[in-house]
Design a protein around this nucleic acid. Structure first.
Lengths: 144, 144
DNA sequence: CGTATGTCAGCTGTACTGACATGT
DNA sequence: CACATGTCAGTACAGCTGACATAC
């Protein structure tokens, strides 16, 4: 039987997720879908990658990542090249258009949420939130 | 230009959401889908309701709620009755089976997350998290 | 041969919009 | 009539599994 505080926090976390997710979905965000934007940003931050690596990083299956990459490819935002060292692998990089889009989209995507956080919370409250978010990333650590 | 701390928190919040959502999705949870379970729990907590009211509470359109309610109806977990005071409205209540399922599902659904929180965090850290979650619900407040 | 990478096809869950019947 | 409630049909997104080709 876990700590009642943990049980309460679990309830709150799930409830917050459901409601905030619906809220975030309604924020206009360029023409890219959320998963497309996430991959674009990751490529911009971490440089060239591959389907499998991106899938692991985003926590999805490689098949799902393939679909996202196909969409980004159709939009001309990424380029694929065979890895000279391993013919199975594809090196995926941002096209020039993709680089520009990553920057623009980042601005647009987080503007609403950042403004809301800034507007609704004091610096002290923001510090508490930031600390909790850092802690919560532990939930996503593998295994232990 | 918002506080850089707000901007950073917005980044972290979105990233945490993406990854934690994927994680939570993989937790086995009875046979009910997440949205079905959420509606069942709400009916159990708040009593009889209607399609429109439930849709507003869950932050979805009435058409989407209709689909969820149809699924719950097919499972025999809810009952619908015409509102005697307004023929357009349907009074939706839990069936006896629905009441039992709501309780059982609640246990099962949050067990994993509560155990993880309990396992990975100290009481002090849990307190920080609980405080931040309380703060963050403000984001979902209407308007101000 | 077994393993790893990546793709395609098909399914599910969830929400959306538009069109519409019905009741107030 | 306008308005509210609820439904059905069609579509989009994002994940999943299974089957498979290809390269190591």
């Amino acid at each position: 039987m876990p700590d009642p505080a943990a049980s309460q926090a679990a309830d709150d976390l799930v409830a917050l997720f459901r409601r905030l997710r619906a809220r975030l979905r309604r924020v206009p965000s360029g023409s890219l879908t959320p998963s497309q934007a996430a991959v674009l940003l990751r490529l911009h931050r971490d440089g060239a990658s591959s389907t499998t690596v991106l899938a692991l990083a985003e926590g999805v299956r490689s098949q799902s990542m393939t679909a996202t990459l196909n969409a980004l490819g159709d939009l001309g935002l990424i380029e694929r090249a065979a890895d000279p060292e391993d013919g199975r692998r594809q090196l995926i990089t941002l096209s020039p258009a993709g680089r520009a889009r990553a920057l623009a989209d980042r601005q647009e995507r987080h503007a609403w949420l950042a403004a809301e956080l800034d507007r609704r919370f004091t610096p002290a409250e923001l510090a508490t939130i930031a600390e909790a978010l850092t802690l919560l990333t532990r939930l996503d650590d593998p295994g232990r």
